[in-house]
Design a protein around this nucleic acid. Structure first.
Lengths: 333, 333
DNA sequence: TTGAAAGCGCTAACAG
DNA sequence: CTGTTAGCGCTTTCAA
């Protein structure tokens, strides 16, 4: 009943060669005579030998696994990135250790530490707030790290993202061009740079360009959930806003449904544009106008970027900016 | 610039004790004099020592990581389960290696093998079709495995799920009680036992009980995607069905929107009930009536179950059936 | 309560 | 082209 393990040693003995030779054929080292290779391969097959990745990891100091820190797999934005990450990882023979953090710094740090203890070869971090504490941990560990779908305002950590400022400018400009003078800005915590620094900046830029005064009352800071959007409507009414830019698709779906459930016609009486173009944008009715981001690709490119770092290839850029777009659907006029 | 590693040996030397003692304090072994423990702990702190989990894994033959095979993280049904799994795993100090399989047997087998090579302590499998090939692999490896959100028709592999037959009976009965004589059955591949054996059986049972003849034309076999549901409508019209039971929420959302986009009133002219009560059910308008399943809990319980198996605790049951429910919303009369 | 020593299964020089 | 020999960093008897 023991989990009987066939080791490289068993194979060597059976094949009448040394462990080193077996190791060579397993690792595709060309310095093995074809006949020997064939013999070893046969024994491996016959014994159904499977190399122990843990032992290999200890000896080679490479685990071929990368850590992925994600706020919540259940959020379509993040899971889309994660899918891109995993596909590319698989392509390069890496596995992924996935850990949810709820965007909570304490959890992020704790998770980071266990990931490092497990000797991951690299880390992909999805999260919107790179606190100093976290940054310090990142630096201490010499493990390659890349941010997927967010930016390090200090530009110290490599990342893959879109130009959030420009994207929001385009979205809000569209709203203003439809005659909306009071456009709400709804996002997650403004403490997150992606919201407080980039998106909000884009929003303010456009307001300024159109000579509209910035009104803090139009800024809603909430969390990235459907429910949060749904219950927002009463507060929205009070602001007399006639349109809104929203930083997350689930949140936007909540806003739209909350409005509609209150008898408001979208887009006739209230327009909404969202940010991620996840599949949710097409599921909700009216379908949502959205900034488009290549979510899957952001994850994929981030992972690809990480493989290069793990290979110690020299990078030209620390940051990769992927193109964004804007798609008009039915939640705007 | 080397990734200088502090080892247990360094700590031992600094603290003036043996590696064994350091190992003991790190592992919370009580057989250490308090004074010694304190001293060691101080050195660990000072040197910022972090045990190497890989070495630990090799020596102890436990990696404290479990493999999770998932069809697609991007599907809310599976990601909900995954979240439950990860939370409980974290609670028990396990990490999760997450691998997408697309429900493709070849990928599932390949992934399973790399997971085993990495010496995971256990595996949670989400997937709807346990092929014989896969089953064979499972048996070869003595690694504990549990299915989350699906059943092994042969009852050989442990699993956590709801009573699919009864749940579908209840849902379809509700539809029939509203006067629908022609109720469509829309699901993923009927080759998947969960659809072809359990859900379909529940469907047929209710039909029989109400004296309605089973009509194969009303059975739609497609894939679990929003798009698949959306394009289904023309075919649905041809069957003269007035209601449908759908096996997946995304798929159901597609069916509802496809119908509505064709000018059909839901639920007045066509009723729909779905299966998973994921958050999507409340996002779509009309909100979807659904069988309710404790998705998060299914994942959580599966992981909890797995920890017991990994501890070699004796199990009373091979299968855990969680309660389901039925919630009426607005996609049915 | 503590230490010595033998591995865990594999990789990686270094010889030959 | 192939074998020998050290480890990788930690756990785990077995003695003391």
């Amino acid at each position: 009943m023991e989990k009987q393990t066939i080791t490289i040693y068993d194979v060597a003995r059976e094949a009448g060669v040394s462990m080193a030779t077996v190791s060579r054929v397993v690792n595709g080292n060309p310095n093995v005579k074809p006949a020997t290779r064939k013999k070893v391969l046969e024994v491996i097959e016959r014994l159904d030998y499977r190399p122990n990745a843990v032992a290999r990891g200890l000896a080679s100091k490479k685990t071929t696994t990368v850590g992925v820190i994600i706020p919540d797999v259940t959020n379509i934005y993040f899971s889309s990135l994660a899918r891109g990450i995993d596909d590319v990882a698989a392509m390069y023979k890496y596995n992924i250790i996935l850990a949810n953090s709820d965007g909570n710094t304490r959890k992020e740090i704790q998770v980071l530490n266990t990931l490092l203890a497990k000797q991951v070869d690299g880390i992909i971090f999805m999260g919107n707030n790179l606190t100093d504490e976290l940054r310090a941990q990142f630096e201490r560990s010499k493990t390659p790290i890349v941010l997927a779908g967010s930016i390090d305002p200090k530009g110290e950590v490599e990342s893959v993202h879109i130009d959030y400022v420009a994207a929001v400018e385009e979205a809000v400009a569209d709203l203003i061009n439809h005659g909306n003078k009071r456009v709400a800005f709804i996002s997650g915590s403004l403490a997150d740079p992606i919201n407080g620094q980039y998106r909000l900046k884009g929003y303010k830029n456009v307001l300024a360009k159109h000579g509209i005064k910035y009104d803090p009352d139009l800024v809603f800071e909430t969390d990235y959930s459907y429910r949060a959007g749904e219950v927002l409507w009463p507060a929205m009414v009070a602001t007399k806003a006639t349109a809104a830019y929203v930083g997350d698709d689930e949140l936007a779906a909540g806003v739209i449904n909350g409005a509609q459930d209150s008898g408001i016609k979208v887009p006739d009486e209230f327009e909404v544009v969202t940010s991620n173009n996840s599949k949710l944008t097409e599921i909700v009715r009216p379908q949502m106008t959205s900034i488009t981001q290549p979510l899957y690709d952001i994850g994929a490119v981030a992972m690809r970027f990480l493989t290069k770092m793990m290979n110690k290839e020299t990078m030209t850029e620390k940051t990769i900016e992927l193109p964004y777009g804007y798609i008009k659907r039915s939640s705007t006029k």
